[in-house]
Each structure stands twice: as structure tokens, then as C-alpha cells.
């Protein structure tokens, strides 16, 4: 059982780290903004980060997880509907995932 003081310290440490990452990126950007043509480069960054996280996650995903990801991508491509895409992906994960994993394994 974690004591109250340690828990509080950990919680505020986490908050400080997360907030500093939000602030630091913005202020680094302010330092770079005078560089000509930097705007589209900075705006490409979040997409690059998402892909850097997504590609390995899919690569090591189980058949059920890959199927769920395929559903999400397909629904987003066709409809742009985040709720339907996420809901379908989660349903595939929860209900189809174990079955797919057992069949393909």
C-alpha cells in the first residue's frame, strides 16, 4: 500500500512532467519560428509522432488487434466517424479478438 505522502509526491511529479512537455514544445517552436519555411515542418511533427507509435504497435499486434485496427482505418477512410470507428474497433478487440487469436494461432 502506497502511503499518502508518497502518492501525492508522485502525482504532482507526473503533473509537472506532463505540463513541462506541453510548455517546452511550444517554447522551442517559438525559438524556431523565425526560420523561413518552418511552419509546415512543425505542423508535420504530430503526425510523425503518431506514426512512430502506431507502426510498431501494429507490427507486434495480435491478429485480433490488427483486425480491429483495419476496421478503424477503413471506417475512418469511408466516413470520418470517430465514434463508429472507435466503437467498432473496440467491439472487434473484445469479442472478435480472442476468437481470431485462437483461430490464427
Amino acid at each position: 500500500m502506497v502511503d499518502q505522502q508518497s502518492a501525492l509526491l508522485a502525482i504532482f511529479m507526473m503533473a509537472a512532467i506532463v505540463y513541462l512537455t506541453r510548455l517546452t514544445g511550444y517554447f522551442i517552436g517559438l525559438q524556431l519560428r523565425h526560420i523561413q519555411g518552418i511552419k509546415p515542418v512543425l505542423e508535420a511533427l504530430p503526425g510523425c509522432a503518431f506514426m512512430a507509435i502506431l507502426a510498431p504497435a501494429v507490427r507486434q499486434g495480435s491478429p485480433g488487434e490488427i483486425a480491429a485496427m483495419a476496421c478503424v482505418v477503413l471506417i475512418m477512410w469511408r466516413s470520418n466517424n470517430v465514434v463508429v470507428a472507435t466503437g467498432t474497433g473496440l467491439a472487434v478487440l473484445l469479442f472478435g479478438g480472442p476468437w481470431l487469436d485462437s483461430v490464427i494461432a
Partner: peptide, 24 residues
């Protein structure tokens, strides 16, 4: 603490990029 700090920082690094993207 150190392990939690490092893991929280690593998964939050994309905030750096989100912040930079909002500069302009």
C-alpha cells in the same frame, strides 16, 4: 519515482511536438 518519471516523460514526448505544431 525515477521509473514513473521516465515512463511518463517518454509517453508524453509527443506533447513536445504538439506544442511545436501550435507555435504559429
Amino acid at each position: 519515482y525515477a521509473t514513473i518519471a521516465l515512463s511518463v516523460f517518454l509517453v508524453s514526448t509527443r506533447n513536445l511536438l504538439l506544442g511545436m505544431a501550435m507555435t504559429h
